[in-house]
Amino acid sequence: MNMYRQALDSLRPIVAAIVVTAGAFALFVAASGYPAVEALMLVGKGAFGSGFAWQNTLSRAAPIMFTALCVAVPARAGMVIIGGEGALALGGLAAAMVGVWWASRPVVMVLAGMALAAWVTGGLWIGISGWLRYRRGVNETISSLLLAYIGQAVFNFLVEGWLRDPASLNKPSTAPLDSRDMIGNIPGMEVHWGLAWGVLACLAAWWLLRHTVFGFAIDIVGGNPRAAKMTGLPVGRLMLAASVLGGGFAGLAGMFEVAAVQGCANADLMAGYGYQGILVSFAARHHPLGVIAGAILIGGLGASNSLLQRHLDLPDAAAQVLQGLLFVSLLAFETLNRRGGRHA
């Protein structure tokens, strides 16, 4: 009973936000001289209106689940990490290199090696921010942002330099993976396995944060570091662990982009998934299960953007306005949330 009420309570601000967003977007579209009601219909139709639309939405959602976890897990320990984009790029690059070097080994081993390399690389990259935070007191938000820019520069330097496959003509890339090692689609769907792994990662993160001592300890560190220190928790090490864990998820996002989509590492890995993950994590109040829903929502907006452009000739920017409106409302309507959100 209590659980139902809780669920209902947390749904209320979301519904309110969606209604307000729809209203505001309709006004905006109408004021610009486009048919408002049709635009709203198309948003729904493009995102969730058919089997094809759902698959379109889910394909776009997969990487964002991972990048949102890169924000959500450190946030539990009280850190605001906004540099997932860099960890994604470097994780993807590491995965691509392992995939090429191990090309002759069994597929399972190649993929496991790629995932491990991506995890470790992404984890270490965001781990730098966690480490700087607890060893030197450097603000992790700014350091992770700087590291994102640095990571992207290092990525471009390597991919257009030493690691460039000479055969990748006008799109500098690393050598391609063997097609045998590519991750395929979930049977019966036009959606790659990255989606399933993304959902699994969210579930695993949820279990870890909710049902383990580690998760409990991290929550205390995030809630009140002073109290955590007094109870004898290794605050610094816990913060480091949370940031490494989060960065690992962003690295995995890169690995799936390489192994399920691109087939190699190139600048297209940096498509903004890291930044979208920040929004999703905050809108989900850093709850790993909420991240699943938030990522699907962003995926859906991407899919409907495509339909809006094609059917109404709305410019791409209209979808960006819609996304902004939706997330501003989602975050603003937190105020209706009865439960005292810890990170609110």
Binding site: S59, E190, V261, G302, A303, S306
Partner: peptide, 24 residues
């Protein structure tokens, strides 16, 4: 003619092409 701008070179462009065939 149906058009779409600012489509990144990711799964997005694959889905856009499929959508142009399926939905248009």
């Amino acid at each position: 003619v149906v058009e779409e701008e600012r489509v990144p070179e990711t799964i997005a462009v694959q889905k856009t092409m499929e959508a142009m065939v399926n939905e248009d």
